[in-house]
């Protein structure tokens, strides 16, 4: 389904030369997405492209800030997920050529395992399950950095939530779009 739609779009673009006259500069648009050219909204795509890295950086900030300030793995993961939601809204469903090549279940799995194992690690050091410790490093140029062991739990949760959002985009977003686009789509 994906392929035929994408090639349709290209064919159409090639047909009329007038179409190219106001074609936007490609580099400002999203790569790896397969939305029909007629449905593209240039402004949203441009905003998505500009905002996407910022939102991801913000989500990572939330992830690291989580222990002492508001934030944490859950909200970080959700914010990162929102970045992908924005990309999806602007660019349509992700196809195989997209930059995200990891399947969401794998991401969820790795996140869940990381989070739970972090809870079990303290036992190896004679602590209690889910206990956390903090370490302070002196890093040249950056100064003192304090790392709490529960950060790894947060990283696990971050990956888990991001995976869940991506999976939702896959099943409830593009899955439904594909259902509707398929011949005889919609309700039986």
């Amino acid at each position: 389904m994906t392929d035929s739609r994408a090639s349709d779009g290209q064919g159409e673009a090639a047909e009329g030369a007038w179409f190219h006259s106001d074609a936007p500069a490609e580099r400002w648009l999203l790569s790896g997405y397969s939305r029909d050219p007629r449905e593209r909204t240039i402004l949203l795509e441009l905003v998505a492209r500009v905002v996407f890295p910022t939102v991801i950086v913000f989500s990572v900030y939330l992830l690291f800030a989580g222990h002492y300030r508001s934030g944490g793995g859950f909200s970080g993961g959700l914010v990162a997920g929102q970045a992908f939601v924005l990309r999806y809204l602007a660019g349509g469903r992700l196809d195989d050529s997209s930059t995200v090549s990891m399947r969401p279940p794998v991401l969820i799995g790795i996140g869940l395992t990381t989070a739970v194992l972090t809870g079990l690690v303290p036992v190896l050091f004679g602590g209690v399950v889910l206990e956390s410790a903090s370490f302070t490093f002196a890093v040249p140029l950056l100064g003192k950095i304090k790392v709490v062991s529960s950060l790894f739990l947060d990283i696990g949760v971050y990956l888990l939530i991001l995976g869940v959002v991506l999976d939702l985009l896959r099943t409830l977003g593009s899955g439904i779009e594909a259902d509707i686009a398929a011949p005889g789509g919609g309700p039986r």
């Binding site: 859950f74 869940v164 939702l168 099943t171 409830l172 439904i176 259902d179 919609g186 309700p187 039986r188």
Partner: peptide
């Protein structure tokens, strides 16, 4: 809130599935 969030998405998917299978 986290639990409600998860279950809401699940119900949404279920509602969509029901609509797809039954037409309502």
């Amino acid at each position: 809130i986290v639990i409600t969030f998860a279950l809401t998405t699940f119900l949404l998917a279920l509602a969509y599935r029901a609509w797809q299978l039954l037409g309502h």
